[in-house]
């Protein structure tokens, strides 16, 4: 748990070095291709690039800690402001995806473990290999083509903010969330199956069945409850996959979120924005996993911090 802070420091150093280890003048890279010599000189001054490297890192890190991610060279606004403008779309997408994925994958994993080796188990394992292999954007375009273009059931692309009404919001999120959840479902279902399978081999399951508990209660209260820790762990680790998927999914569905912003920033070579987004995403990832670690107390009372 305490390891969170060193990890974040290392991430900050890596993101900082990303620009400095690049061959060429960081000021020129930051300024972009069309910048004049004065602009480059100005950037050199503000970033303190004439100072030694540790001093530069100190200045930069101090800004970051104060929540200042710098100014976007492309959009000409603070990076924090850019993130604030676009976080709603990404947060909605991620939230709906996680809910959909957990609601689908956990029951599937439990059933597969219950009928270990049966046709359903084999089907789910097959699906999970497929889920890991099919690219997010293929699923996305397949769904757009089938559901939106052929059947005309849902809007093709775009995003509606939640204050425009709950229904339009959901309508625009259904396909992206399904797209994004495929790989996540594959991952969680696999781990659920493995850990429930392990729990089912324990003596207390035999006891529960021997005293005549209904099978559903044995599976949920006894097997799944004891298999919860690895499942929440993988949900946390899967956030990395989810962030990668967000970048692609938002591009496919033209959702103006952080993922789309990342791609635009890379295309515009807008380095302060790229740096800010990487830091932000990593912070979310590490933060979620910290919460996951803390939640073990709830899922397994034997664990104490």
């Amino acid at each position: 748990m305490l390891a969170t802070i060193p990890v974040l420091v290392i991430v900050a150093v890596l993101v900082f070095l990303l620009l400095r280890i690049t061959p060429g003048d960081p000021a020129a890279i930051l300024a972009g291709d069309a910048a004049s010599t004065e602009q480059i000189e100005g950037i050199r001054k503000t970033l303190g690039l004439d100072q030694p490297l540790p001093v530069q890192f100190g200045i930069w890190a101090l800004q970051m800690v104060q929540g200042d991610l710098g100014e976007s060279y492309y959009y000409k606004v603070r990076v924090t402001e850019l993130i604030a403008q676009r976080i709603e779309a990404t947060f909605s997408l991620a939230l709906v995806t996680i809910v959909v994925a957990v609601l689908i994958s956990v029951p599937l994993g439990v059933i597969a473990a219950w009928r270990f080796g049966g046709w359903f188990d084999r089907f789910l394992m097959g699906f999970s290999v497929f889920g890991f292999s099919v690219p997010v954007f293929i699923v996305g375009y397949l769904l757009v083509w089938l559901v939106s273009l052929k059947l005309g059931w849902l809007p093709v692309q775009g995003y509606k903010r939640i204050d425009a009404g709950l229904w339009p919001w959901i309508q625009h999120l259904v396909l992206p969330a399904i797209t994004l959840s495929v790989i996540y479902i594959a991952l969680i279902a696999r781990v659920t199956r493995a850990s429930v399978l392990e729990a089912l081999g324990e003596d207390y399951i035999r006891t529960a069945r021997a005293k005549g508990l209904p099978e559903s209660r044995v599976l949920i209260k006894h097997a799944l409850a004891n298999a919860a820790v690895p499942i929440v762990t993988v949900i946390g680790i899967g956030i990395a996959l989810l962030i990668g998927g967000v970048v692609v999914t938002e591009s496919v569905y033209a959702i103006p979120g952080l993922g789309r912003l990342t791609v635009d920033a890379v295309l515009a070579r807008d380095f302060p924005t790229i740096q800010g987004l990487i830091l932000f995403f990593s912070l979310i990832y590490v933060g979620v996993n910290l919460l996951v670690d803390l939640s073990y107390v709830v899922f397994d009372p034997r664990i104490r911090y």
């Binding site: 974040l8 290392i10 991430v11 890596l14 962030i243 990668g244 692609v248 990487i278 990593s282 990832y285």
Partner: peptide
């Protein structure tokens, strides 16, 4: 630290 940054990023 590297593992804390999503691979695609």
């Amino acid at each position: 630290g590297i593992m804390a940054i999503p691979a695609i990023l």
